[in-house]
């Protein structure tokens, strides 16, 4: 088992004002691993995508709870974002670039593609009627230390 350095949890209502709150909180927590600006930007964008999905897709007609759990390892951050919303019928289809069920709301269908590209690994688990859990990890490289000191 890998050594856990730190862990945090966050829970909030599915209000769009919380999108910024969520990504900024996770970025602040991740900063303990001394990531580059580039790595932080990738994490912020991916968290924003997953949280926005829970807010607009998981709870289309009501408010619900969005949960985040983040774990820091020596050289990696792992982030879980979950909701108890409507779930995804076909995960492979949902992950395809440009696929969206909300085109009328100016959604681009690029959320999963961005998470996939910006993080090192992405797992999507979903059960219709029960909810969705996204798990994503990003390696935070340590080479900077060797070069700086």
């Amino acid at each position: 088992m890998r050594n856990i350095k730190n862990e945090m949890k966050l829970e909030f209502l599915s209000k769009s004002a919380n999108e910024a709150f969520a990504r900024i909180s996770i970025a602040a927590f991740a900063s303990q691993l001394d990531p580059t600006i580039e790595e932080i930007a990738d994490i912020k964008t991916s968290v924003s995508e997953a949280v926005t999905n829970s807010i607009i897709h998981a709870y289309p007609n009501k408010e619900g709870i969005v949960k985040i759990r983040a774990v820091l390892y020596e050289d990696e951050i792992e982030i879980e974002i979950s909701d108890t919303g409507i779930g995804i019928e076909n995960v492979n289809e949902a992950k395809a670039p440009l696929f969206t069920t909300k085109g009328n709301l100016e959604r681009s269908g690029m959320g999963f593609t961005i998470m996939d590209n910006f993080m090192d690994n992405l797992k999507v688990e979903s059960i219709v009627g029960l909810g969705t859990k996204i798990t994503m990890g990003k390696k935070i490289k340590k080479i900077k230390d060797e070069n700086t000191y």
């Binding site: 924003s48 995508e49 681009s108 690029m110 959320g111």
Partner: peptide
Amino acid sequence: FMDSAGIGLII
């Protein structure tokens, strides 16, 4: 900062 919402906004 911009995420995929920016794509929809521009299109």
